[in-house]
Design a protein around this nucleic acid. Structure first.
Length: 479
RNA sequence: GGCCCGUUGGUCAAACGGUUAAGACACCGCCCUUUCACGGCGGAGAUAGGAGUUCGAUUCUCCUACGGGUCACCA
């Protein structure tokens, strides 16, 4: 039997990284087995419908490369792939369940008395099953009178239900713990739990990959599968992605979604790579994996049972690795727009700036802050000229700048090589170390402790006029 | 509160009865160096606690503690 997995998000307009990871694992399980990855939209909650939300899902899957083989947009043999378009199915199956004695009509309202849920210290209460006692005649009378109803699953009396999860192992729950959950809501829509079972079966899904928050409702699923006499799929529950030890990564964080991460300057490949490692280990020491490599390396047995805290520092490191692996042209293509709109002087050689920036960039957004001195010389402290290892002092720096000034003013050609050679010549002539001369130059032209290059590169980027001007400013400061 | 699940350095995690308990990020130090970074080398840092099973427990069992999930006509 072909492996078929599905990603079944509800359209919220927001791709949480936990959901993305679930999608990734589902994709990896399917592809690692030569199977199919299916996208199904779960929109049975009409109260929460959000315009354009499905597009966010398409866009994210496309950008990350998690290409689905079947789905609302690409079609497939098991459609439709949007639950709201499958409405007629659910009611039929619910009725079949009633006929088989595994479900029943319930005419109770939503008020407190009839739906005795609570969280007091006596434990939550279950629905008291009063409608289960209705006679067929009473049910028919209610139905004929047009009384609103829901359909509830009938959980067996006594005994227990077991299921085996691929990561958590076999879990057994007493049937007494399970409530007669609602299958069909009074608006005629199925609940998530019911639609899921129907659709997964109808779409021939073999592995159900989802968050561990569904672990406790899984016995109900199994009861439903066996009530229909259907094969039970394999379950793969994934531990949650946490913000810290106590809290899940949430929307409030501002970095819980794929788009948030992209906006912060992370690369799609790095994000995918990082989240793959959150809650899963390849076993070896390798950490960097492309999507095809993940397909190759992934195994359900490597999925962890315990929650994993999302570590931005590690993501940054990994992102930096991906950035460093880019060709200069690729990196330039990624930051060009940012630099163009930020750098005021249109004569700045942005390509060279980009190559200088690449090694020291961990997030694409870093390039702005690192380049700010190009727009304007900060008002820096003359003490910045002091560097113990370079053996520079304000006095020596003044001397160095005064030496440099005429050389650069007279330099016939303004290229990195020309500036570099001139400086080296000066170093040789003065009999000093490189740093003695170049540290003051870097400081004078940038006014910053951290810059994307040394004095030579920065002078080149700034152009002759600006460089001369800044050196003069430096000389004034030091006098 | 009931039920279910989890717990190896700050973080991600390997080791699935026998190891000096890997590795990575972060951190610290040194080297390289026209700054910072990159890169190289090195360092500190962990099996939640307690019983038991066993010749031997990170690993198996139980208890405790702590954490998470769930208990919706939401998914």
């Amino acid at each position: 039997m072909q492996t078929r997995t599905r990603f079944a998000p509800s359209p919220t307009g927001y791709m949480h990284v936990g959901n993305l990871r679930t999608a990734l694992y589902a994709y990896l399980i399917a592809k690692g087995d030569g199977g199919k990855f299916i996208l199904r939209i779960e929109d049975t909650d009409r109260g929460r419908l959000i315009e354009g939300a499905v597009d966010v899902i398409y866009k994210t899957l496309k950008e990350t490369g998690l290409k689905h083989d079947e789905g609302p947009d690409v079609g497939g043999d098991y459609g439709p792939y949007v639950q709201s378009q499958r409405m007629s199915l659910y009611m039929d199956y619910a009725k079949e369940l009633i006929a088989r004695g595994h479900a029943y009509y319930c005419f109770c309202g939503k008020d407190e008395e009839e739906q005795p849920h609570g969280h007091d210290n006596k434990g939550a209460q279950k629905y008291d099953r009063r409608c289960l006692k209705l006679s067929p005649e009473e049910v028919k009378a209610n139905l004929d009178a047009g009384k609103p109803f829901v359909i509830r699953q009938r959980i067996p009396d006594g005994g227990s239900t077991s299921f085996t999860d691929e990561v958590y192992g076999t879990i057994t729950v007493d049937n007494d713990e399970i409530e007669d959950q609602i299958l069909i809501k009074s608006d005629g829509f199925p609940t998530y739990n019911f639609a899921n079972v129907i659709d997964d079966h109808l779409m021939a899904i073999t592995h159900i990959i989802r968050g561990s928050e569904y672990l406790s409702s899984t016995p109900k699923y199994n009861l439903l599968y066996s009530a229909f006499g259907w094969d039970i799929p394999k379950y793969v529950h994934c531990p949650p992605v946490m913000k810290d030890a106590q809290n899940k990564l949430s929307k409030r964080n501002g970095d819980a979604s794929y788009d948030d991460l992209i906006a912060k300057g992370y690369l799609s490949d790095a994000i995918l790579n990082y989240i793959a490692l959150l809650g899963w280990s390849p076993g070896g020491e390798r950490e960097k994996f492309s999507l095809p490599e993940l397909v190759e390396a992934f195994s359900v047995s490597g999925i962890s049972k315990s929650p994993a805290i999302f570590d931005t520092a590690k993501l940054e490191w990994l992102n930096g690795e991906y950035i460093k692996a880019l060709s200069p042209d690729e990196f330039y293509a990624l930051v060009r727009g940012r630099l163009e709109s930020f750098i005021k002087d249109k004569n700045v050689d942005l390509y060279t700036l980009s190559t200088l920036l690449q090694k020291r960039t961990t997030k694409l957004t870093d390039v702005i802050e690192q380049s700010d001195f190009l727009n304007e010389l900060p008002d820096y402290d003359p003490q910045m000229y002091v560097h113990k290892k370079m053996k520079t002092t304000p006095e020596s720096s003044l001397e160095a700048l005064c030496d440099i000034l005429p050389v650069l003013e007279a330099l016939p050609e303004w290229t990195i090589d020309a500036i570099h050679d001139a400086m080296m010549e000066l170093v040789a002539k003065k009999g000093v170390k490189n740093g003695w001369l170049l540290w003051p130059l870097r400081t004078a032209v940038s006014g910053k402790a951290v810059t994307p290059g040394g004095g030579v590169e920065l002078a080149y980027l700034l152009g002759r006029d600006e460089t001369i001007k800044r050196i003069k400013t430096g000389i004034e400061k030091l006098k």
